[in-house]
Design a protein around this nucleic acid. Structure first.
Lengths: 196, 196
DNA sequence: TTGGGGTGTAAGCATCTGCTTACTTTGGCC
DNA sequence: GGCCAAAGTAAGCAGATGCTTACACCCCAA
């Protein structure tokens, strides 16, 4: 997929990009602990030593690969549609289940405290902020955390633990259930007609 | 905690039990990948080789340690109180956060496919069954999975990812939110007063 | 008393893995 | 052409880790 073979001869920028891309793919697919620097370098078509020259350590590479593209979905989705879109991607029946979703790297790396910190301070914090903006309740952030927890749990059960019955369940049904519950959690307390 | 020192001299049964207990404690605390057989043997006060003689492999020990005591809480709790009790244990402010809760071993080991299978086929299946019994809806199992996913996500966010804001949130508030939503998901469709 | 199987131990093997080092090659600039 | 820093490479180090092996010990039945 990133296998460059020839074409790039001596191009540090392209090599860095290839390493980042390969790292992202493998971290998402296998998690931090089960991804080796040798695998990343091989997939990027680069030498292992370059990985350390350019990024310093495996952990730094993880941080760079995960925080870099600040989760496109999060940036381009209106807050009120966020839950629905995340669900849609998680429940999509596509063969590779959202290979580009950093949430899976989180789920598959959660045992490692360093990688957990990356998400706690970066990706998780962003989701939290966006979701919390959807309600005026005084415990907005707690409610946002509960919604985020639910999304994480659904991803965990479906794609990491591979509960096959759940994986086969009707996405529309699931979405309906979740959105209804989330609606009561996050709807604005000050509820009045938009125009009047 | 399990440090036997003397007292047991040549007692295979006790040694096996000590290994199982030590394994349970460490797997729950650190997850499968970050627990070494040396650590387990040391905590059990036993020789490493015995672990392999009695259990065969680290993975088999994991399976034995996790499926053995079939989660006391699950067995002794009336289904309709299960969610509340699991939440209570997860949200308890005690220093060691539910050291005896196998759900944490799951959360901290989810990256490993073998350990994931253990929970999918054992612990997860049991929770699923109990929760599904709480509703008459035709998609009872999907609803049960959603509730289980939420519990897992809450545990993940709170104790593994250590979202400190969420960890400091009011347990009563959280419980209230979750129970309300779960109530609409799992309440019996055929809803009528118990006595009438 | 003695032999043997069950129990416990020390040491090491084989492999993996993050990271380093010493080296060669490339290509642009004077 | 000749220089030299940047780019790339091969090899290996050091430690960790799952698992095995060869051996010592102890109880108990015959």
């Amino acid at each position: 997929m990133v296998d460059e073979e020839l074409g790039r001869r001596r191009d540090a920028t392209a090599t860095k990009a290839a390493l980042l891309s390969a790292a992202r793919e493998l971290f998402i697919e296998r998690g931090f602990d089960h991804t080796t620097v040798r695998d990343i370098a091989a997939l990027a078509g680069a030498n292992q030593a370059l990985l350390f020259r350019y990024f310093g350590s495996k952990e730094a590479l993880f941080r760079a690969a995960m925080t870099n593209q600040s989760h496109q979905l999060l940036a381009e989705t209106p807050p009120e549609q966020l839950v629905g879109r995340v669900l849609a991607r998680m429940l999509a029946p596509d063969a590779p289940p959202a290979k580009d979703n950093p949430l899976y790297a989180l789920l598959r790396s959660s045992a490692n405290e360093h990688t957990a910190a990356v998400f706690r301070d970066d990706l998780g914090a962003r989701y939290r902020r966006v979701l919390a903006s959807l309600t005026d309740a005084d415990d907005a952030e707690t409610r946002a955390d509960l919604v985020l927890a639910w999304l994480l749990g659904i991803g965990l059960l479906r794609s990491v633990l591979d509960q096959h019955d759940f994986a086969d369940a009707d996405p529309a049904r699931i979405t309906e259930h979740v959105l209804r519950a989330v609606g009561t959690l996050l709807e604005r307390v000050d509820q009045r007609p938009p125009t009047a």
